[in-house]
Design a protein around this nucleic acid. Sequence first.
DNA 1: ATAAAATAACTGACTAGTCAGTCATAATTA
DNA 2: TAATTATGACTGACTAGTCAGTTATTTTAT
Lengths: 214, 214
Amino acid sequence: MSDLVDASSDAAPLSRREQQKEEKNKALIDAALAVFSRVGFAAAKMDDVAREAGVSKGTVYLYFESKEQLFEEMVKVNMAPLMSEIAENLARPSMSATERLKAHMKFFYTKILNTNRRQIMRLIMAEGPNFPHLAEFYHANVLSRGQAVIKAIIQQGIDEGEFRQMQGHGLIQNIVAGALVAGIWKLVFDPFQPLDLDAYFDTHVDLILNGLKA
Amino acid sequence: MSDLVDASSDAAPLSRREQQKEEKNKALIDAALAVFSRVGFAAAKMDDVAREAGVSKGTVYLYFESKEQLFEEMVKVNMAPLMSEIAENLARPSMSATERLKAHMKFFYTKILNTNRRQIMRLIMAEGPNFPHLAEFYHANVLSRGQAVIKAIIQQGIDEGEFRQMQGHGLIQNIVAGALVAGIWKLVFDPFQPLDLDAYFDTHVDLILNGLKA
DNA sequence: ATAAAATAACTGACTAGTCAGTCATAATTA
DNA sequence: TAATTATGACTGACTAGTCAGTTATTTTAT
């Protein structure tokens, strides 16, 4: 737990047991994501998580000490791989700010919005107030890192004269907002008014880049 | 139920009983908003709603037939007064598109984001998938109306040469996105990174208007 | 190798508690 | 008084979490 760096360092021999254990852990996390996404935290049944992972209920408690801990772990495990990737986006080779911003947004759309990670995004919004831990974790590890990248890009854009001078309060949230809304829309309102993510992405980038342009 | 037009048409005599009944109905709706906002739908207890309304649990069932119905009614009642106001924004006196857009957004911020209606917004996102009725209702009565207003404003802006030609897929969602995110941020991440809604609003408007400008 | 012993992982019936919804009784109002 | 409205104790269905017992895997001894 809480080992956010990928733990597969020196290749341990990995006995059959250990291997199965890891697989089961993964299966449980996946099942948890599925069940929590489907019905939310409170309405999710541990029995369902167990069944979905092909395991009995007791087993779940051999891996996680409580429903809450399972939930938190599920979020962390699913977000961890993303975090290192975000970090890489900070130190990008020479590209114009415009191109970097586009690339970073594309990353956002493909790595979160088009994945079932968007379910996690929604869960954070839905359950965040009841899980201050988690909201804080998500903020510290995902949001603030993402913000740092965008901030750097904007600074570059201003320095190089591509973007106008802008540093209003909440600028970064405003820039990303379109993406968050797309994710939510897909999950909640798509049946009533479908959203084509690709086209939406283009609109988003167009609008924002024009808004920033010098 | 489902009378979305303000029902206080011809002033009925309103006997003492009827009056008390209405008051209690209101108290219950308010209590429901408070409790559901605090813990979400599944974890909310009818007992708590009753206590918060100063009434016994049995009474709740004299006014609403189930927890679900109470939830739906609560959303509808809280959103209804908004809807007529939105409609008015469609038929606005002569103003530049820019001014109209600013005004409409201000409306959004002051009438939803700064109210505890933003809790409802969050509840819709959280519970929407479990309440397709509600999501649909919200979409049909709030979102699509709001969209119509913005669409009209944009058209005006294009016609009058203020805005550039733009009608990308999801343009409207992108325009409003900043506001939705502000509402969510306040509810979920404010403790970790506070958001000043007024300053945020300025940034939002600035960014969007520039993005649209011809 | 093979069997026996030891350990680790798993199971599902069970407990203890929760909560939506009901209903017999009481209070209020007309 | 009669009718309406309110109460809160009660029920029954449901579920998080436990644990005594079972099964699978690994180690040790022959």
